[in-house]
């Protein structure tokens, strides 16, 4: 019974791949590749050295843009949340800027930074910065006033209060928003590379299509994007389950 249940997911994957294979092989003039052609495509990329190069290029951009955003947005958001005046002053601007799709900045990014790493890093920075700032800001507002009062009661200075009460209290929400932001960053880097770069997995997809309809490489690129995105997500979820953050996830 147990073993049977464990086999089910794999059976489902196998079934989908089989359906895919059947659907393609029944059309003689299919442009879309078979699953096997995709595996061969990934192998071809690996042999040419493009696989490593493009994966590294995409991860490089995401890392810089995302880390920079996190490092700046967390203190900024906490500062705004802690000082009500700052929040009141900047909130309307944040609210207008936030729903502007990071990708709508592509023309400006190219204008300012040209086609290359910097443009993509800038776009990823923008896409991650605002959500993290807003979460950090709101998280401060949602801290239980009891916790703050306990801190004050024990005679903590303002700095100690921030370090010992505020920071741990907002941590769970911050970690969740960091995970969501990383997901968005991964989405944005692919789009940015389709338009504003000449390397990376997004570029691979567009390039493979434009240069001779190599749809086996297009789908290979998609599979790689999915796998790496999954790894990033798993990494961030591990972080959420660290024991000192667990209190926030328990029900009631």
């Amino acid at each position: 019974m147990r073993a049977w249940a464990k086999a089910l997911p794999w059976a489902f994957v196998a079934l989908l791949i089989l359906t895919w294979q059947m659907a393609i092989s029944h059309q003689p003039a299919a442009i879309l590749p078979t699953p096997w052609a995709v595996v061969l495509g990934i192998q071809e990329l690996a042999v040419k050295g493009l696989l490593l190069k493009y994966v590294v290029a995409s991860l490089f951009r995401v890392t810089w843009g995302y880390v920079l955003a996190a490092v700046l947005a967390i203190p900024f958001g906490l500062f705004l949340g802690w000082h009500r005046r700052g929040q009141v002053a900047l909130n309307p601007l944040l609210q207008i800027l936030r729903p502007i799709s990071a990708l709508a900045w592509i023309p400006l990014a190219i204008l300012w930074f040209g086609v290359g790493d910097l443009a993509s890093i800038f776009l990823i920075f923008l896409a991650s910065f605002l959500p993290i700032t807003v979460t950090a800001m709101n998280a401060v507002g949602s801290i239980s006033s009891n916790h703050l009062n306990v801190g004050r009661n024990f005679g903590l200075s303002e700095t100690q209060l921030v370090l010992k009460v505020l920071f741990p209290a907002v941590m769970p929400q911050l970690v969740v928003s960091l995970r969501i932001a990383l997901g968005i960053a991964w989405l944005v880097v692919v789009a940015a590379e389709m338009i504003a770069a000449t390397s990376g997995l997004g570029f691979l997809i567009v390039d493979a299509r434009n240069a001779g309809n190599r749809y086996d490489l297009v789908v290979a690129g998609m599979v790689l994007i999915g796998l790496i995105g999954l790894l990033l997500d798993i990494m961030m979820r591990k972080l959420e389950h660290l024991s000192f953050l667990r209190w926030a996830h328990r029900e009631e």
Binding site: L32, W186, L187, V188, V190, A191, M194, L201, G202, I205, V206, A208, R209, Y215, V218, V219, G221, M222, I225, G229
Partner: peptide
Amino acid sequence: SPLAWIPV
């Protein structure tokens, strides 16, 4: 990324 589906 949904945008990776664009070619398809």
